[in-house]
Structures are given as C-alpha cells and as structure tokens.
C-alpha cells in the first residue's frame, strides 16, 4: 500500500491536527488575550478525557457525559486559578506544570478506577457503533466513506465553531477588558476592571476548550493512558501557537496542521534509519522551528507584533 495514497492515514493525521487545533485555541485565549503563560494546559485536556471515559465506562450516556466533562475541565481551571493567578508570570507557568503533573501521577496511581498505566479501555463507549451507523447511513445512499471520516469532520466542525465563538467573544467588551489587563494590570484595575475575575474567566474558558479537545481525543483513541498527558503535549501546543501566531485563530489552524504533519505525518517517508531515530529527528525539527520563530519572528506566521507580550 502506498501510504501517500492511504486516505485513512491522512484522515487520521488531520484529525490529530484538529484535536491540537481545539487544544491550542484554549491556549490562545489564555496567552493571546489574557497574557497567562499556562504550562499545565494538558491537565485540562486530561480532565476532559478521563471525565468522559470514566463516566461512559460507568454507564453514563455519552450525551450527558460529554458536557459534564467539559464543565469539569472548566471547574478544574477555576480550582487551579483561584490560588495561583496572583503569582508572577514565570511562577504561574511552573505552578501550572506542577499541578498538571500531580493530576497525571494521581491518574497513574489510582489503577482501580482509571486503569493506571494499563489504560482506561473502551473510554469512548458506544462511539464505534455510532460511527458504524453513520457510515451505513451514507453507504445506504451510495456513498462509501472511510471509517475515519465522521470523526475528522466532527473534529474540524468543533474547531471551527470554537474559533467562531472566540471571534464573537473577541468583539465583546469582555475581551477588550481582558486585553487591557494584559497590557497593563495596574491601569486596568485603576479604571475599575475586576482584574482577578477577568483572568480567572479566561483561564476557565481556555480550560473548557482544552476539555473539549480531551473529549475529541477520547473518541479518537478509544483507550486513555496517563502518558498521553505528559507536559510535552502542552509544549507541542505552544509550538503550534508560536508557529501560527499569538492572537491569530487562523494561525492556530495552520500551525496545528504543520506540527501534526511533522510529528505524525512523516511516518510515510522511508528514511534509512531506525524508527526511534526518525522520531528523534521529528522533535529536533519541532525544536528548531520554535527556536527559529522565537529568534526571527516571535509573533508567528500570522500573528501581529503588537499582540505579542513576551516581556514577562
């Protein structure tokens, strides 16, 4: 089989890109609008994923489990934000990373409930059957779809809806106040803006969006493992944000596709090297991309320089 022609493979890579896009839209709200450097973003994705998986495996219907999982991710955002949002930027980054690691270690250790390192099996419940129903419906009308297409479409529809929602919010006084906080916290407070509440709302909104990406991830992978939620996922998210551009939703989409292709898509290239060496080179490329962007175009491909606040 020529992988270049293997439609299912590319559908998978694009679905991964879509999950990343949703994940990074959450980061975009936090860093782009509110100036919050959240290095523990993957924790919110983990809450969304494991909450979905645990509810579904315990018999809660999917349509109830999913919104609950997203709400729980937002709640976790509030929980993390309440004690930490008063900290300085670099402290906040390190505390959020630590909070994410605590959550992952707990998931890993509570093997009886979460499956631990053995994984949470059938976390997506009856999604496979639903998927087959959708495919049958189309083939009944003479359209034969690859089994990966429904989730691909759903993921990108969700990504576009989230982006549209954010753009809608973007025209609101709320986002203007948020950006005022980002530009100058003291000045925003002086004109009566509730600085702390605004930051907390941005963190919770970003967390809810990451929770949605966790739900999509669960549907894609069907089994969940703690190592899916290591800090590296957050940093891949940051590479996407840096590449696409802080402040640009379109940039997030383009960045996600580029990074997903580098990380998952180059498998089809036939390197004369062992698999782990090729894997290593992929991340070398990601690292060089981050460095190159930071050195020569810190605002990203589609970002605006005046949107960028990297002075800490």
């Amino acid at each position: 089989m020529d992988p270049l022609l293997a439609f299912g493979f590319w559908a998978y890579v694009l679905t991964v890109a879509g999950v990343y896009a949703v994940f990074v839209l959450g980061l975009q709200v936090q860093l782009g609008d509110a100036g919050l450097l959240n290095f523990g973003h993957v924790a919110f994705m983990a809450v969304g994923a494991y909450a979905t998986g645990l509810m579904i495996t315990n018999g809660v219907p999917m349509l109830i489990a999913i919104p609950c999982a997203v709400a729980l991710a937002a709640l976790f955002g509030v929980l993390i934000g309440l004690p930490t949002l008063r900290l300085r930027g670099d402290f906040f980054a390190i505390v959020t990373i630590a909070a994410g690691e605590i959550l992952r270690i707990i998931i890993q250790n509570r093997q009886d409930e979460t499956g631990g390192t053995l994984g949470l099996r059938r976390a997506s419940g009856s999604w496979r059957e639903t998927n087959n129903t959708i495919l049958d419906w189309f083939s009944g009308r003479g359209i034969e779809l690859d089994r990966r297409v429904p989730l691909l479409v759903i993921t990108w529809v969700v990504a576009v809806l989230v982006a549209l929602l954010l753009r809608h919010i973007g025209r609101s006084p709320w986002r203007r106040a948020l950006r005022a906080v980002r530009e100058n916290e003291d000045a925003a407070a002086a004109v009566g803006k509730p600085v702390f509440n605004l930051k907390l709302q941005a963190l919770a909104l970003g967390a809810a969006i990451a929770g949605i990406s966790g739900v999509l991830f669960t549907l894609l992978q069907t089994s969940l493992y703690p190592e899916n939620f290591e800090p590296i996922v957050t940093f891949i998210g940051f590479s996407i944000l840096i590449l696409g551009g802080i402040g640009s939703y379109f940039g997030v989409v383009v960045g996600s596709i580029i990074i997903a292709f580098i990380i998952s898509g180059v498998r089809f290239l036939d390197f004369p090297l062992e698999a782990d060496k090729v894997a290593a080179l992929r991340y070398v490329v990601v690292g060089l991309l981050i460095m190159g962007m930071m050195a020569f175009r810190p605002q990203g491909i589609f970002g605006k320089r005046e949107e960028l606040h990297l002075d800490g």
Binding site: F235, F238, K277, A279, V284, L288, I290
Partner: peptide, 28 residues
Amino acid sequence: GAGVMQLLLLSLGFSFVLRNLILFAWGG
C-alpha cells in the same frame, strides 16, 4: 533586546533539540 519569556521559549525549543539529538546519537 529579547524579553524574559522570549528567551524562556527559545530555551524550551533548544531543550527539544538537545534531548532528541541525544536520543538520536545514543538511542533510548
């Protein structure tokens, strides 16, 4: 005139590069 966060993210990129060059050179 790079800011603190710009340098931080640059070092993050460099950590990816270094760690994976080590993986490339010596294996896992």
